[in-house]
Write a protein that binds this DNA or RNA. Structure first.
Length: 645
DNA sequence: CCCCCTTTGAAGAGA
DNA sequence: TCTCTTCAAAGGGGG
């Protein structure tokens, strides 16, 4: 297998990988266009926050009208250009139109990657998780396709065919034809129902088809209990506006944020109110560090007994509504005693930021669609930043040597397109920023004296102490940075590349006897030694323990790996998605391109069908490469979370 | 039982 | 002012 040549600025191979490893580091910012895009991104986000703050009192105005487009347009244009260019680079101009109009952060996976099919696990080494996700009628046509995908963010029965489960025990003859058949499964599209604030109204409409009553008449159904829930009262402030007499009848409007639990973010207590946090505010007022007089006056909800969820006590977990009722009947004396005991343990949590709010809402949906339960992996799907520049690497991932999560292209593209925070439109994100702002406001009202520093260091206290102990023990031997310098970052261990603690330095107390790490992730870095890349049993054993424990990255360097147990390597990964263009052009890649072109023709891909093509191309790549390498079965549409023995 | 993982964003700490 | 660190949620997994 030819190695990627290490030189050449335009070579998207190893060199780019090297660059990418400096992500979040110092040198990635040297990519000027990227840094400008980053700045734009920051500006956009800050503008979202600012707009959220400045527009807090004007709820009737449309979000789109209030948002000055130039900034966003500039950013999007830049990003789009970057995407287009990257796509052209990687597929020779197959992408004739902007990949994702309006969604610049979505990277089209490297469908030409030769490593996709080879990077699949042996079927015997995997457990195939059932994938349940809406089958989208992804037809060519950017916006429509995107809308269909966006609909999938709030899957409705109209989108979900069955609970359709794909199981691919590694033997499925996944072909482009089949793929398209799958995507041709008739689904009901209702693009007109796609509200620009889809994620915010999913609570009210996600479970309903267009044939259902209009939103204002709809009642939501708890996805788990099936109990209908009334929609958000439109003119009731979603934050703590309920009077004592109504709280028992109207679910907390923020309950949509946690549809999974059916519990509001800031729960309602006493009198049967549901709340995830056990401590009622009235109780908290006495329990809190803050005296009762600090609690906001009567007009605030908390004075009615509605607690703030940020108040938690270490000893008490979430209580159900019936437990609230039962607690009323239980001995109040014991409660009082407990409360007194808790007084010293009250912990007021930080208000959730926009992304946390979004994640809280979407996590359940991701789980529902792919049965993936590990939050770390879900969070990656939800929040992984897709760089406009495909050459840039992203962060290490949750992929562990002992737990391989295999995403097929289709699955991954779907998940990313559907749930990724960065795939949200500006307006959609703005809503979460707005929510977060109100969260903070309410938090400030409820806990005027609270400061984030109150919680600062509580969690990491032990960790810091441990780190301090470590730093004291070690007499500052040279770390990778000092040892190899910036010019030889390929020799750095993974943590050093990420500006983390040098694992060699720790484990070897200054010695760097171990082969250069692969970014702590076996896949994430251009391996200086191919044998160190693949976690084959032998190589794994030879690897330092600390390195074994390093999480595998989604981004791998398959070009260096096909000779080394490619079946052990992950299939399409998030990293590949975003860095796909960075993959070196191998002969296999070229052949993929050819196949893709033919596949595109055969699938009658229309110009501008970026989403459709992006969805189809992986299959094409899978199919083609499978035909080329029948022994290397492509990783099918499944999530794999089984340890490799 | 506690901590880690993983994400973004907010905010504190420190240089 | 800038950079770095911590904490919010979540649940599986490991020690």
């Amino acid at each position: 297998m030819p190695q990627l040549n290490g030189g050449g600025g335009d070579d998207l191979g190893a060199n780019d990988e090297m660059i990418s490893f400096k992500d979040e580091g110092e040198q990635e910012e040297k990519i000027s266009e990227n840094s400008s895009a980053e700045r734009d991104l920051a500006d956009v986000k800050s503008s979202l926050v600012n707009e959220s703050e400045t527009n807090q009192n004007s709820s009737s105005d449309s979000e789109a009208e209030r948002r000055p487009p130039p900034r966003s347009e500039t950013f999007r244009d830049k990003t789009r250009e970057s995407l287009e260019e990257a796509a052209k680079r990687q597929d020779g101009g197959l992408f004739k139109s902007p990949p994702y109009p309006g969604y610049p952060f979505i990277m089209i996976p490297d469908l030409t990657s030769p490593y996709l099919p080879n990077g699949s696990l042996s079927p015997t080494a995997r457990t195939y998780l059932q994938m349940k996700w809406p089958l989208l009628d992804v037809q060519p046509g950017g916006l429509q396709s995107r809308q269909a995908l966006k609909d999938a963010r709030s899957p409705s029965p109209a989108h979900i065919v069955g609970p359709f489960c794909w199981e691919f025990p590694g033997q499925s003859d996944l072909s482009l034809h089949q793929f398209h058949l799958s995507n041709k499964v008739p689904v009901v599209q209702h693009p007109h129902h796609v509200h620009p604030l889809t994620p915010l109204i999913t609570y009210s409409n996600e479970h309903f088809t267009p044939g259902n009553p209009p939103p204002h008449l709809q009642t939501d159904v708890d996805p788990k209990t099936g109990i209908p829930r009334p929609p958000h009262p439109p003119d009731i402030s979603p934050y703590y506006p309920l009077s004592p007499g109504t709280v028992g009848q109207i679910p907390h409007p923020l309950g949509w944020l946690v549809p999974q639990q059916g519990q509001p973010v800031y729960p309602i207590t006493t009198g049967g109110f549901r709340h995830p946090y056990p401590t009622a505010l009235t109780v908290n007022a006495s329990m809190s560090r803050f005296p009762p007089h600090m609690v906001p006056p009567h007009h605030s909800l908390h004075t009615t007994g509605i607690p703030h969820p940020a108040i938690v006590t270490p000893n008490v977990k979430q209580e159900s509504s019936h437990s609230d009722i039962s607690s009323l009947n239980s001995s109040k004396q014991s409660d009082a005693k407990k409360e007194e005991e808790k007084k010293k343990q009250v912990h007021i949590k930080k208000p959730l930021n926009a992304f946390m709010l979004y994640m809280k809402e979407m996590r359940a949906k991701v789980v529902a669609e792919c049965t993936l339960k590990e939050s770390a992996a879900i969070n990656q799907i939800l929040g992984r930043r897709v760089s406009p520049d495909p050459r840039r690497r992203l962060r290490r991932t949750v992929w562990k040597p002992e737990s391989w999560y295999m995403f097929s292209w289709v699955t991954l593209v779907h998940l990313l397109l559907t749930f990724q925070w960065h795939a949200l439109s500006r307006e959609e994100q703005a809503k979460y920023y707005e929510l977060a702002r109100k969260e903070r406001q309410l938090h400030m009202q409820l806990y005027p004296g609270w400061s984030a520093r109150d919680n600062y260091g509580k969690r990491k206290k032990r960790k810091r102490e441990k780190q301090q102990a470590e730093s004291n023990d070690l007499s500052a031997p040279k770390k990778c940075r000092a040892r190899f310098g910036l010019d030889q970052q390929n020799n750095w261990c993974g943590p050093c590349r990420r500006k983390k603690k040098c694992i060699r330095y720790i484990q070897g107390e200054g010695s760097c006897a171990s082969p250069p790490s692969t970014d702590g992730s076996l896949l994430d870095s251009p391996p200086s030694s191919p044998s160190s890349v693949v976690p084959s049993p032998s190589s794994k054993e030879s690897k330092p323990q600390t390195e074994q424990m390093q999480p595998l990255s989604l981004t791998m360097k398959p070009a260096h790996q096909p000779l080394h147990h490619p079946h052990l390597l992950a299939g399409p990964s998030l990293g590949q998605l975003e860095n796909s263009a960075a993959a070196g052009k191998t002969p296999a890649a070229s052949s993929h391109n050819g196949a893709l072109e033919r596949a595109d023709v055969s699938s009658s891909r229309q110009p501008g069908s970026s989403v459709a093509s992006s969805m189809a191309r992986p299959s094409a790549a899978l199919c083609h490469s499978r035909s080329l390498h029948p022994s290397a079965a492509p990783q099918p549409l499944s999530l794999v979370t089984k340890s490799i023995e």
